[in-house]
Amino acid sequence: MLSFALKRLAIAAPTLFIIVSLSFFLMHTAPGGPFDAEANLEPQIIANLKAAYDLDKPLFQQYLIYLGKVAQGEFGPSIRYQDRSVTQLIATGLPVSLRIGLSAIFIAAMIGISLGITAALNQNKTTDYVVMGVAMTGIAVPSFVLAPLMTLIFGVILKLLPIATLEPGGSLARTFPAIAPLTPYILPIIALAIPQVAIISRLTRGAMIEVLRQNYIRTARAKGLAERRVVWRHALQAGLLPVVSYLGPAIAGIVTGAVVVETIFQLPGMGRFFVQGAINRDYPLVLGIVIIFATAVIAMNLIVDLLYGVLDPKVKAGD
């Protein structure tokens, strides 16, 4: 297991390097530059600004300079947020994104798995159709539709929850002061979780139905075990394997989802910095966030692979 983890870490470094390099050149070949909006500035001032960010140097040299900084764990100054470094921006944005993203994926996994099992145990019965019908709707309605809709209903009309702020607010926070600090996060988390609930419940249902058909489930029943034990002890672990392998990409999906959701809800997370950075050609900011996202996705995939080895004794991590 340890050597497997080390091997994966060794692959992670070149992977990151390629991602950084590709992003760097893609970013710089995109038309426009950081100071296009300031067209009314003197050409001399713009030239000075460019020099300050090394943008006057040949692209390849800029690339080498950037790699050198990253190697020392530095992402450089932001161009758009002028008095702050990219590291500082990430330090304020990352906790917000993590809180929303991880809560969403955790809640989605719990609910999705429960729904999937319920549907599988009632295959082709009413419960199954209802659960899966709701799930299909969840897949069909994307976050960028769901999020404004929820804002409208729960924020604007019902005034239950605060909108577009990290400050607690809304009638829910006043009625239950204990959960007030959570209120700004509720809508973004729901918007991010719902499509994932839909996908995870479908995956779980399919996998559980497949597992419940296996010969070893028949053996477990022949032994006279209670249905509860058959499901939880004999079926679930194998039924969860596809869900676990999905969680790696799902977390990557949450990252892109965060970009949309944070923009819609106007939350100062990584996603919003990323969008702002991209619009303003804030090269260091965008690249810094790409590196953080890529690292997170690689790390999550590694964790998922290790977890897979724990769930399935046949998979010896390292083979």
């Binding site: 010969n215 477990a220 769930l311 399935d312 004794p313």
Partner: peptide
């Protein structure tokens, strides 16, 4: 089929 009749993860 004893090969598939035992629960693989137990």
């Amino acid at each position: 089929d004893a090969g598939t009749s035992l629960t693989p993860h137990m």
